[in-house]
Design a protein around this nucleic acid. Sequence first.
RNA 1: GGCUCGUUGGUGAAAUGGUUAACACAUUGCCCUCUCAAGGCAACAUUCACGGGUUCAAAUCCCGUACGAGUCACCA
Length: 553
Amino acid sequence: MTNQELADLIFPNITKTVEDYELMYPKRVLPEGAKVVRFAPSPTGFMHIGNMMSATINYCLAKSSNGVFFLRNEDTDQKRSVEGSVDFIYHTLDYYHIMPDEYEYNGEVVGSYGPYIQSKRIEIYHTFIKYLISIGRAYPCFLTSAELEEIRAYQSKSKRRIGIYGRYAKFRDVPNEELAQRIKNGEKFVIRFRSEGDFNKKFIFEDLTKGKIEMPQNDIDVPIMKSENLLPTYHFAHVIDDHLMRTTHVVRGEEWMSSVPLHFELFAAFGFKMPKYIHTSLILKKDGDTIRKISKRKDPEALMFFYEEKGYPYLAVIDAVLTIANSNFEEWRTNHPDTPFYCFPFSPKKMSSSGALFDLDKLDNISKNIIAKMPAETLYEEYLEWAKKYDEHVYNLITNHKDDTISFLNIERTCKKPRKDYENYSSIYHKTWYIYDEEWDKEEITYDFGKITDKDEIKKIMREYLNNYYNESDTEEVWFNKIKELCDKLNYCSDMKKYKEKPAAYKGNVADFTTIMRVVLTTSSMTPNLYDIMKILGRDRMQHRFEIFLKKY
RNA sequence: GGCUCGUUGGUGAAAUGGUUAACACAUUGCCCUCUCAAGGCAACAUUCACGGGUUCAAAUCCCGUACGAGUCACCA
């Protein structure tokens, strides 16, 4: 019985050939140097920070080279598939502005190299597997899981290499007639690749980030098709898909490094050109004294949902991820503050080869800078959109007080060195709540006075100021001069230098004095510019807040 | 256990054989200042996991050790 006959027996309905597919998916016509890259997650849960890094790198690679970035859904393991994860992945890519050029989503196919869902490509895989069988490079294997376990136990006990290779590949050299008979009997089988590698010989390849790597050749007959759903394993799907989709650069986690010799052999069996590999290091997490791989379960910040819920601007997360991915990103960013992130010339060589800790402090810093640069109206819109999804109370508040919110957010924002108060949208409320009148009805309100706590003194100052000094139309300079005037009149020192010379001569200084007004009006001793706050509040609301204070005390 | 990769401060890291080991974040201090935020200035690795070697010279090259990580599935 010939190999071809065996192949026909296993795949009787496959009529297309490898050549047919080569013609269907011709080489892409792209400008010189254009990179074709892909983001190929398996739909097993949520989007992970590691996925995010990979997607972002891919996006940069494609955009900066006028190439193509496509999304491929690797759903060959149906047991692990989780409902809704495709939606989440799609949503996340959209949220972070790293949308693929080609994808398949909700029945819509964009791009001519699809299907982009592996389970829909089964006929393609079968065609290529059939070809491999017909040339003797693949064979059905009937080893049961119990037998496999036995082999593994034996190998491990006798300190041999684990795997199906050499004499452990029991069905490798069984005559086709016997294989055919077992198939006719209905026995379950997987298709294994027939390796021709030699473990004692070296295989050298160049990883774009790690450099030259020398490994033993692959000699294991790995399964390329599973017995249950007849879907290919990752290794086989990778080779076929990335060849037919004409991928030029494969960005994937370091955990794949050790299977490169296998992939190489698979590509070579078809005579395909191998793509270039960029193996990215893992993102780690410090857990007490130990450093470990970041975990979806233990670390909330591992999941992309975390950042969205906290309200980090998408660009902050992207920049933080790129900072980790490429050591020269920060320098590039300071030199190109307003250039879109995807113009960054990502260099695999400059990628750290050891795992990095994702630093939330750094993220905060990046985020503060980004938020500080937004015009107040833009920030308001972003804030509103975030609140709509995650905080109904805030949403109602800022919808009803749009003008005050924008005015407040605009304090010290239009100058060259704007304030950096907020690292994300969820932190804004805690620093702005006091401008909204309805928030003052709450019982819990407490005043955070500083040095001066004497109620009568506070009352006296406030009365005097509101009745005889405050004028809504004053400029900031006039406003402050008046404060100083009252300050001196009530024996608080308006000159900080003078005060420092002999503090005992005064009841306090201007800072103490303004703190009183600040606290009565906001409850907090730490706020942005008081002049601007008074301007937003206006005389009546100031008066009202003073009355609230009188009631509370 | 086999194979592979890695190890520079609290964090991300630069340096690719040559003066005092960049820079950014964090922390601390000072200055500025109506508080805060910012900004300015400073401090923070007697030294590059450890041991040996090559060299006039090593964080950088070589060897060994330790430690960490990845992988060795009909999971990706």
